[in-house]
């Protein structure tokens, strides 16, 4: 039986540096496997959409502009994504990855959360709503 049993801990801490992280002044290091923002490489993609089929949050869709010419556009909603990495798991061609650097994703408007990957002209076309004639319709994940 004793009183003040943790006094020693308190004294040690009193004379040592605080363990609190100084974020945002010092950015903490994240683990290699940390799951941050998603990135996509259309060069390897086949447009099979397995990734979007298994996405639990309907945060990802791959729009096929021209399958033969490897022209795909990925639409990714950062705010819907739950950062589970199932899309990486489902993709057989390793087109998707997640950054361990890019994790400060807060934004002031919702629009900034929607990210598109692909050739600029394809994205522009898609956003204008006049996809190429052989474009497949956009499917919800």
């Amino acid at each position: 039986m004793k009183i003040g049993s943790m006094l020693k801990d308190v004294l040690i801490s009193f004379f040592s540096a605080p363990i609190t992280e100084k974020y945002p002044f010092e950015r903490p290091e994240t683990a290699d496997r940390f799951r941050g923002k998603l990135f996509y490489d259309p060069a390897k993609c086949t447009g099979c959409n397995l990734c979007s089929k298994d996405c639990p949050a309907k945060a990802l869709e791959i729009v096929v502009i021209d399958r033969a010419a490897k022209r795909f556009v990925a639409r990714y909603d950062m705010d819907k994504c739950v950062y589970c990495a199932q899309c990486i798991q489902s993709c057989k061609f390793k087109c998707i990855g997640m950054s361990n650097e890019d994790w400060e994703l807060a934004a002031l408007t919702k629009e900034l959360f929607t990210v598109t990957y692909g050739k600029e002209e394809d994205i522009a076309r898609l956003l204008e709503g006049n996809a190429l004639p052989n474009a497949e319709p956009i499917k919800a994940g």
């Binding site: 683990a31 799951r35 739950v82 589970c84 798991q89």
Partner: peptide, 24 residues
Amino acid sequence: MNLLEELTGNRVNYSICVLGGVKH
């Protein structure tokens, strides 16, 4: 918590299980 982040990629909701095995 840091160890879990290092092994699985997240502090909570580790998502290490997949059907048929584990991710990492």
